[in-house]
Design a protein around this nucleic acid. Structure first.
Length: 505
DNA sequence: CGCAGAGCGGTCTATAGCGG
DNA sequence: CCGCTATAGACCGCTCTGCG
């Protein structure tokens, strides 16, 4: 690169650009080059103007020393829009390969990160200079965020990011496989045959068009909205009136959606369609923007070893799983493998293998916590039943089991609720949480905050009569028997689909 | 206690408009 | 044609909050 651009003629002044290893580079970002020249010129007390650079590059391009192109990269906060980045290619570069586009995107990402982290460090330094010891000014304005989050969850939003990514990917795969002319062969039996066909290409599709066909219910689960949804969950997004659609697909929703797409991209399950965008602009909504990768792979993270063994991480063999996503069951198998490899990766180095090295989320157990994944129908039916039963009094254990079974709610998840006795006394308030509900248990409750309230949040406003009666004025503490709390908790278990472990006091 | 999500405040880029 | 300025849009780090 540098050889072709080693001499820059600007305002009759020669600039020599000399950079080690630059010869090996096939491209340079325009912003990178600009910053670089700016730094050089600063030493001379002058500033490089962008237009001057553009003119010079045009001249070099006409001479055939380089090629100036624009590469489209997706925005992080808006899945429907792309950002065009200016790239100067070495004249020897022919067609843009997907690898080169990847490198360009990576370089742009790194450039952004570097410049912004530099700016943030400068800001931090300034803050240190101006900070008044002991004075802490909160710049956060209290808002209705908790209410919004609550409303989103009430609409079925799944907190676990990887579960959202999984559901979204399964939807996209199903969408793409139904596209006319799609090369995903349905119901293939012969491995050799589909391998041959799938080698041909990764099916192209328009992300915007795919999302338009997304069921509202799925949208509420994976993207989320705080909007009150009535009689719309059976529809797909494109069937919604514009106003409703815009309310669902607000800036934040687009941001959340874009982050999911970004993760699918980093998992190499999706690829940005490699189109060279000309000066005239951006492709339309109907044009293919992404391709579905049908041959993804997963590497098992390498087991952690004791330092004494002195074995280099790089020299241990990696176990690799290759998939051919020709059938729904293979898509399921991909996700099960990914979850298994990384969720159980307690004694492994997630960063040692793909995709753990590029998607940190895959190795966070919280990202996979599917405890509260329920369809809206399940959620509403559960609310209805619990309300009905609770009007009649206490809910016996067997009824909880019946509800869980009939609504197909899982009881088989990780233990999350733990009741145990306090070190000395058996009576204390649990972390002020019960206090906030104006009642307390008569024994130790060591459940996390969310567990202590989440289950009654699930069943509706104010607890649907399941809560012990509100204590009268002055009656701040109420003693409950273990059986009371067990019963209540088992409803929670049904509602949340988690285990309850009881540690005898 | 650590993580994830979201808002804020900041920087950077692209662009348009203006005057020299 | 050139350079300056204002503005919008994008997106990061920091921070706070709630969850598990």
């Amino acid at each position: 690169m540098a050889s072709s651009m080693s001499c820059f003629n600007k305002n009759h002044q020669n600039f020599t650009i000399n950079c080690k290893n630059e010869q090996k580079k096939k491209f340079v970002l325009k912003v990178e080059l600009h910053k670089w020249l700016e730094r050089l010129e600063k030493e001379n007390g002058k500033m490089m103007d962008r237009k001057t650079l553009a003119r010079t590059l045009n001249k070099l391009q006409q001479e055939g020393s380089c090629k100036c192109i624009k590469v489209s990269v997706p925005l992080v906060t808006n899945y429907t829009r792309n950002r065009l980045i200016d790239v100067i290619l070495h004249s020897s570069v022919g067609d843009l390969s997907p690898e080169l586009v990847d490198q360009i995107r990576m370089r742009q990402r790194n450039f952004d990160t570097e410049t912004r982290s530099g700016a943030a460090a400068k800001l931090k330094q300034n803050q240190h200079k101006t900070a008044i010891p002991g004075l802490r000014i909160s710049r956060r304005i209290k808002d209705n965020k908790p209410l919004i989050i609550e409303a989103m969850h009430a609409n079925g939003f799944i907190g676990a990011k990887m579960i959202r990514v999984k559901l979204f990917h399964k939807f996209l795969w199903a969408y793409v496989s139904c596209l006319p002319g799609c090369c995903i062969p349905a119901g293939y039996a012969e491995e050799g045959q589909h391998t041959k066909d799938l080698n041909q290409s990764s099916p192209l599709f328009s992300m915007a068009a795919a999302i338009n066909e997304m069921p509202v219910e799925l949208f509420l689960q994976v993207v989320g909205s705080a909007k009150k949804i009535d009689n719309m969950i059976t529809k797909v997004l494109s069937e919604l009136p514009t106003e409703e659609y815009n309310q669902l697909m607000d800036t934040h929703a687009k941001g959340r959606l874009s982050r999911l797409i970004n993760i699918l991209d980093k998992l190499k399950l999706l690829q940005l369609a490699n189109e060279l965008v000309d000066e005239s602009g951006v492709p339309s909504d109907a044009a293919p923007t992404h391709s579905m990768e049908l041959r993804p792979y997963i590497e098992e993270p390498i087991r952690r070893i004791l330092p004494s063994s002195h074995v280099n991480l790089n020299h241990r063999p990696k176990i690799r799983h290759d998939f051919v996503l020709s059938k729904q069951e293979f898509v399921d198998a991909y996700w099960e493998t990914l979850e298994y490899c990384y969720l159980t990766a307690g004694l492994t180095e997630p960063l040692s293998a793909f995709p753990g090295c590029s998607v940190p989320e895959v190795s966070h157990p919280r990202s996979w916590s599917s405890r509260r994944v329920m369809t809206i129908e399940q959620r509403r039916e559960l609310q209805k039943r619990i309300r009905k039963i609770s009007e009649e009094g206490r809910i016996p254990f067997k009824d909880c089991l019946v509800i869980a079974k009939e609504l197909n709610l899982s009881l088989e998840q990780n233990p999350q609720i733990t009741y145990r006795s306090p070190p000395k006394t058996k009576s204390y308030l649990a972390a002020g949480e019960m206090e906030s509900h104006k009642w307390s248990s008569g024994f130790a409750v060591n459940a996390p905050r969310w567990q202590q309230k989440r289950w009654w949040e699930l069943v509706g406003d104010g607890g649907c009569g399941l809560l012990p009666p509100e204590p009268k004025t002055g009656m701040r503490k109420k003693q409950f028997m273990m059986s009371d709390v067990l019963e209540i908790s088992l409803v929670a278990v049904s509602a949340t689909g988690c285990h309850l472990s009881v540690i005898p006091t």
